[in-house]
Amino acid sequence: MAEPLAAATTAQHGQPDIVSKRDFLKLVTISGAAIGAGAFAWPFIASMNPSRDVLALSSVEVDLTPVQAGQGITVVWRGKPIFVRHRTEAEIKEAVDTPLQAMIEPVPDADRVKPGHAQWIVVIGICTHLGCVPLGNKPTDPRGDYGGWFCPCHGSQYDTAGRVRHGPAPLNLFLPPYAFESDTKIRIG
């Protein structure tokens, strides 16, 4: 709405020098106001990002000593279940020997574990289909045809490396960022 008015005043007064100086000033002022509004809006947007206390809890340490071969534990990281499973020799061998062609998202077993710690598989326990938590971490749970995890919601099945072997899930279980602090201790996040 500023435009017709500004144009009208220009026409009436016919003082282009003053007008162009004013227009430049106006442009600078409007730009300044826009920058100011943007700077004022940023804290509001940023306040919705995770706060310092939430970020501070984003790493957990897990002691692996009590986990026997063949068993798994579930820990919570960023509000999500993390499956930590101690694989048996037979399970490792099967996971390594499975041909890549048999998989929906082909990834060798070596890329799913940390070097030298092949007995430990650590995955985010959320089905890549629609976000349910698969069964199979407890020895009494159904583990599906591939010995890993079985999602009760829509029947997806994962092997002991957390790779999807039967749909409808499209992707392997995600790996959280983690590192071995010692042979019996990992730090997730």
Binding site: H13, I18, R22, L25, K26, V28, T29, G32, G36
Partner: peptide, 20 residues
């Protein structure tokens, strides 16, 4: 500092607009 600058700018524009 920014608001002081903006005060100067808006005041200058105001002077121009009201000059007539």
């Amino acid at each position: 500092l920014f608001l002081t600058l903006m005060t100067g700018l808006t005041y200058a524009v105001k002077r121009k607009i009201w000059a007539e």
